[in-house]
Simulated assay, not measured.
Amino acid sequence: MILVLSSLAQLLLPWWVLVPLCFAVAAWSQLSGGRAFLAGLLGAALSWWLPAAWLATHGAERLASRLVTLLPLGGNAWTLVLVSGVVAGLVGGLAALSGTWARQALRPASQATGITQ
């Protein structure tokens, strides 16, 4: 769900829309912390890797080659695609983990322990 929503949201909104989106999806879902982090990591990373790989192979390699000269990546445009996906994945994973922790922190104590009155 994070992959689809973040891919659609990034068409019209800035890149940082990943953060509130991953946070909200993880807070809404009932995933554990590790699974939420993994979902955010993969969803956000793939939402950057797929378009970046497509653009790198279909005409935007000149832009990538110019950008890669500014960064210490050894002049390889595919390294830029990899690094950008890893950064986006870490941002999405940490946002999703934060959403899960926020849901757990705001849940009443009786629901957390299963105690009924």
Rank of each mutant, 00 (worst) to 15 (best):
A44I: 04
C22K: 00
Q117S: 15
W16V: 07
S29M: 13
Q117F: 15
L5E: 06
A39G: 06
G89K: 06
A52V: 06
Q10W: 11
G99A: 02
L97N: 01
G85R: 01
W28Q: 10
G92E: 04
L38R: 05
Q104D: 11
L3P: 06
V86Y: 02
W101G: 08
A102E: 05
A60L: 14
L13D: 01
L42I: 05
A27I: 00
W78M: 05
G93T: 01
W16E: 05
P108G: 07
G59A: 04
V83I: 06
E61H: 09
A64I: 14
A27W: 09
A45S: 12
R35T: 12
T79N: 13
L46M: 11
V87P: 10
W48A: 04
L12R: 07
V25Q: 03
F23M: 11
P14T: 11
L31R: 08
P14K: 12
L97T: 01
L11W: 08
G75K: 03
A102V: 12
G33F: 03
L73T: 03
A26P: 08
W78Y: 03
L42W: 04
T57L: 14
L8C: 13
G33Q: 03
A64L: 15
S47V: 08
G43Y: 00
S110F: 14
V86F: 03
R107I: 09
T116A: 07
G89P: 13
T69D: 13
W15H: 00
A77E: 10
I2S: 06
Q117G: 13
V87D: 10
A88Y: 07
A64W: 15
A102L: 11
A88I: 06
G92F: 03
S98P: 09
L42D: 01
